[in-house]
């Protein structure tokens, strides 16, 4: 048997997570943890669920999962503390001669 298929094309949950969409865009969201107040507004807005506030000892700030960030910029646009910047990925930083 080369493959197994589920009866009626029924799928198991959350299989999309194996698809890494982090390479889609030209930009990534970058969090300035000094400015971040961990208000979680970006969490609620991210269409891809890939920015989350996490605790690091006494510190708490938003962390972007670059496996999935498509670089849409929604989080940066809703951050009242200007703690998120969209930055061009290294790959696209091309010098024009």
């Amino acid at each position: 048997m080369e493959i197994k298929i589920n009866i009626g094309a029924i799928s198991e949950p959350l299989q999309s997570e194996k698809l890494k969409t982090g390479d889609w865009g030209t930009e990534w969201a970058v969090v300035d943890k000094e400015k971040c107040t961990a208000c979680r507004v970006c969490e609620q807005f991210c269409p891809d669920g890939c920015i989350e506030v996490k605790k690091f000892g006494d510190e708490e700030y938003a962390v972007v999962d670059y496996n999935y960030c498509k670089g849409c910029g929604v989080c940066a646009s809703v951050c009242r503390f200007e703690a998120i910047k969209m930055e061009l990925k290294e790959l696209f930083k091309i010098e024009v001669c």
């Binding site: 298929i5 009626g8 094309a9 029924i10 799928s11 949950p13």
Partner: peptide, 20 residues
């Protein structure tokens, strides 16, 4: 046990479901 019914199948897997 959450599963998804009625998933769509691209050309690389549709035919198998009809064979089934």
């Amino acid at each position: 046990k959450p599963v998804a019914f009625g998933c769509y199948a691209p050309p690389n897997i549709y035919m198998e479901f009809r064979v089934a």
